[in-house]
Design a protein around this nucleic acid. Structure first.
Lengths: 130, 130
DNA sequence: GCCGGGTTGTAAAAAAGATGTAAAAACGCC
DNA sequence: GGCGTTTTTACATCTTTTTTACAACCCGGC
């Protein structure tokens, strides 16, 4: 018997890559710094969808539709729980990468060198007040 | 159509060989350390397919297709049972060699010196939680 | 500023789903 | 029929996903 048919699809999508994170859409491989992140199916699909649209806000409704196939207005917290697990696995970069857009959904942001300091969401606050 | 190659060429496949295991595709001969492994036909075909694609994840569906000719979504546990018998015959190396990819399939990994840590079976847990 | 209703975060439990395993049944060949 | 092999069955175990319950948070109105 000659060589077997390709066991894996020969799809060719350009991987995502930044300072700390890489995501290979073809092999469904994710790495954070040096480690390979082992994500479950849903975790991966969720992250992949977000990363694929890096910089864009994706509504909860859309995420629930694309990842879970949920249509209409289904009341579930599973999206939040999965986001949480992703954040956990993204470790300290979590807040940099996955942003919550209140009342709408989430947004993945490519890595950028840390700002002057705080992760100013919109809170100049009294960081150096006093 | 393509070139006029012999349809059934007596392909000479290069055997697989690592520290403990050898598999001669031509003679269908398998050895583990010093002993010869006597595998049944299905056991051999399954192992050969996995070894041939060492390092790659092969989906259950593909294994069922190529070894059993099962198409579509047939519900059977025979694959699991054969994997189990293979593992049994691979003795203590079983877990090193045949890896379960939850929800997808299996993967044969060539023998390698133990990692700095085990190949996280599937419990990344909160390694970076905190 | 404070309140209040809706939204998101979180931990834990429950449910769903997949694989591991032993044993019995079915198969195929002599 | 006997025997080795393969498949099914039934259940155990493990992983993943979803739900639950409540805490924390956001934001507009007062």
């Amino acid at each position: 018997m000659g060589s077997l048919q390709a066991v894996n699809e020969p799809t060719v999508l350009t991987p995502y890559r930044d300072e700390h994170l890489t995501l290979d859409f073809n092999r469904q491989h994710v790495t954070l710094d040096t480690d390979r992140l082992t994500l479950t199916r849903k975790e991966y699909e969720l992250l992949a969808l977000l990363v694929e649209h890096a910089g864009e806000i994706i509504p909860r409704e859309t995420l629930l539709m694309r990842v879970w196939g949920y249509g209409g207005d289904i009341r579930t917290r599973t999206l939040d729980v999965h986001i949480r697990r992703l954040r956990k696995k993204l470790g300290g970069y979590a807040d940099q990468y996955i942003e919550t857009i209140f009342g709408i959904g989430y947004r993945f942001q490519p890595w950028r060198a840390p700002r002057f300091l705080p992760t100013q969401t919109s809170r100049p606050a009294m960081a150096w007040g006093a």
